[in-house]
């Protein structure tokens, strides 16, 4: 029993040492490598809900939007990122990012089904602002390529999460759940716009 307790203590000490090492490593800067790039859209809650909303809305719009949006969005976002890197100023980027959560959340909540080109243009405009926000962080990254790859992949996976949740729209109850999710996303976006988050 004593031995077991000692083993547990040693194990706990080792774990503590591991945690300390991890913190020391990440203190090099949030804009580091693949992991920090990957976490950027996930830790930014306004980005996160907007990306999930894109996937949800794509699922609502059905074929081919459900598959076109996740293909096109990263490329348009990269174009927005290029603008940010080049130092081309865009007005009120953070407001647009929060606004995108409100707009896309409302589109899901109201189950809007505009023509595909309207949806594509709307999502494309928001993608440019999201990309711009990420792009301005890129020059400070310790390794820009891995950082860029990390946040592009994370953004794409968030879309796919939205698409997967959106598949529930096949069921009547699922449709209500998704529309309620859209309302929550819009509310979160409003909170960011109002400065509560």
């Amino acid at each position: 029993m004593t031995l077991s307790l000692r083993s547990c203590l040693i194990f706990a000490l080792l774990l503590t040492a591991q945690i300390s090492a991890a913190h020391a490593h990440s203190s090099e800067g949030i804009a580091g490598g693949l992991a920090s790039g990957f976490l950027h859209p996930i830790l930014g809650f306004d980005h996160l809900v907007a990306m999930v909303a894109v996937g949800l809305w794509g699922a609502f719009l059905g074929m081919p939007a459900i598959w076109i949006l996740p293909v096109v969005f990263p490329l348009v976002m990269a174009a927005g990122g290029a603008l940010g890197i080049a130092g081309v100023p865009l007005p009120a980027v953070e407001t647009w990012v929060a606004g995108s959560a409100v707009a896309l959340g409302l589109c899901v909540a109201l189950a809007l089904r505009p023509p595909l080109w309207v949806a594509a243009v709307l999502v494309g405009v928001f993608a440019i602002f999201h990309g711009h926000a990420h792009g301005t962080e890129l020059p400070t990254a310790a390794n820009p390529l891995s950082y860029a790859l990390g946040f592009v992949v994370a953004t794409g996976l968030l879309h796919l999460c939205g698409v997967a949740l959106g598949m529930l729209s096949r069921y009547e109850l699922g449709t209500y759940a998704i529309r309620a999710g859209g309302a929550v996303i819009a509310t979160v976006g409003l909170a960011f716009l109002a400065g509560y988050a």
């Binding site: 598959w67 293909v71 490329l75 990269a78 130092g87 792009g135 790859l149 592009v152 794409g156």
Partner: peptide, 28 residues
Amino acid sequence: TWQRVGIRIAASWVAAACLLVLSLTFAS
């Protein structure tokens, strides 16, 4: 269809990451 779209999605991630870093290279 969805599998082939998956290939295109993966390629779009590759293209987007390359585009971003190329922009940074040329801007720098």
